[in-house]
C-alpha cells in the first residue's frame, strides 16, 4: 500500500462516523475550542474522535484550540466538487466483467426466492453514480456508494467495490441473465466513452406509496391515517420504520417494496 493510499483510508475511516462529520462541518466555519466542540457533540467520546481526526491529518490541535488543517480544508472542498471529477474519470473507465456468482441465499420476503451475490471486475468505483441514468429505476446512494436498480420484482444493488447483490431471484440461471444484461448496459455506456446525461429523479407517486402501506389507520405511527403518513413520507418528515405494522411478517413484502420506493423520494 502506498503512503498516499493508506492516508486516504485513514481519511475515509475518519469521515465514516456521524459525530466526526459533525465536528469537521463545525470547524469549517472557523477554529473552535475543545470546550465548544464538546458542547455540540458531547464530551464523553470527544478525545477519541479528535485523535482519529488528527491521525487522518484532517485537524490540528493546539493547546485547547482545534482547527481544520490545510489538508482537511481541501478535503471538504473537494468533496463538494467530486461529482464533476467523476464525469472526467468516465472516459478512463474500463469495461466490466462478471467474475463469479458466489452464493445463493434465501430471500426474506419470499422463501421461494433467493438472493445472489456476484462479483464485478474491475470494481466500478466512482463511475457508478454517473451510471445512474442508464437504469429507468436506478438510485445511487452516497452513503453506501451503491447503485440500486429495479426491474419487475428483482432488485439489484451494485457496490463500488464490485459486489453485486440481487434480491427476489428464482434460480441461478435467472441471476446470470440479470448480470449479463447489467454488464451489457454498463459496457455499452463505457464503450461510448461519454457519461450518460443526468436525468431527473424517478417521480414516486403518493398513491404508489399509499398502496403498499397497511391502510389500517392504526395510528401507531402517531399519524391520523396511513394516507397522512404517506404524505409525511413523501415530504421526508418521517421514516419508514415509524410504521410498526410493516414489521409484521405479513407485510414483509410491502416493506421491502416501500424501502426501495422511499429511496427514490
Amino acid at each position: 500500500m502506498s503512503g498516499n493510499e493508506s492516508e486516504t483510508k485513514l481519511v475515509n475511516f475518519a469521515m465514516a462516523n456521524a459525530t466526526r462529520r459533525k465536528i469537521t462541518n463545525f470547524l469549517a466555519n472557523g477554529d473552535r475550542s475543545t470546550e465548544e466542540i464538546g458542547g455540540i457533540v458531547g464530551k464523553a467520546m470527544l478525545d477519541f474522535h479528535l485523535k482519529i481526526l488528527q491521525q487522518a491529518s484532517l485537524i490540528e490541535l493546539e493547546e485547547e484550540t482545534v482547527k481544520l488543517s490545510e489538508y482537511g480544508r481541501n478535503f471538504l472542498k473537494s468533496k463538494k466538487e467530486k461529482v464533476a471529477e467523476e464525469i472526467v474519470d468516465f472516459s478512463q473507465a474500463k469495461p466490466v466483467e462478471i467474475a463469479e456468482v458466489r452464493q445463493l441465499l434465501p430471500c426474506i420476503a419470499d422463501s421461494s426466492k433467493f438472493r445472489v451475490i456476484a462479483n464485478m471486475a474491475p470494481p466500478p468505483g466512482g463511475i457508478l453514480k454517473v451510471l445512474e441514468p442508464l437504469f429507468p429505476k436506478g438510485s445511487y446512494s452516497d452513503r453506501t456508494g451503491g447503485l440500486i436498480t429495479q426491474k419487475g420484482e428483482i432488485i439489484t444493488t451494485i457496490y463500488g467495490t464490485g459486489k453485486v447483490s440481487i434480491r427476489m431471484i428464482k434460480n441461478e440461471s435467472e441471476a446470470r441473465e440479470v448480470l449479463e444484461s447489467l454488464r451489457n448496459i454498463i459496457n455499452e455506456a463505457i464503450a461510448k466513452g461519454v457519461a450518460p446525461a443526468p436525468r431527473k429523479k424517478v417521480r414516486v407517486e403518493l398513491m404508489e406509496i399509499y398502496k403498499y402501506l397497511p391502510q389500517t389507520n392504526c395510528g401507531k405511527c402517531s399519524e391520523q391515517s396511513c394516507y397522512s403518513f404517506a404524505i409525511k413520507l413523501m415530504a421526508g418528515e418521517v421514516t419508514l420504520d415509524k410504521c410498526k405494522l410493516l414489521k409484521e411478517p405479513e407485510y414483509t413484502g410491502n416493506q421491502e417494496r416501500l424501502q426501495v420506493l422511499t429511496e427514490y423520494i
Binding site: L105, I108, G146
Partner: peptide, 11 residues
C-alpha cells in the same frame, strides 16, 4: 464468504 452475506442482506 461471510462478507457476501452482509452484502446480500443490505437491510
Amino acid at each position: 464468504n461471510l462478507a457476501d452475506i452482509l452484502y446480500a442482506y443490505g437491510e
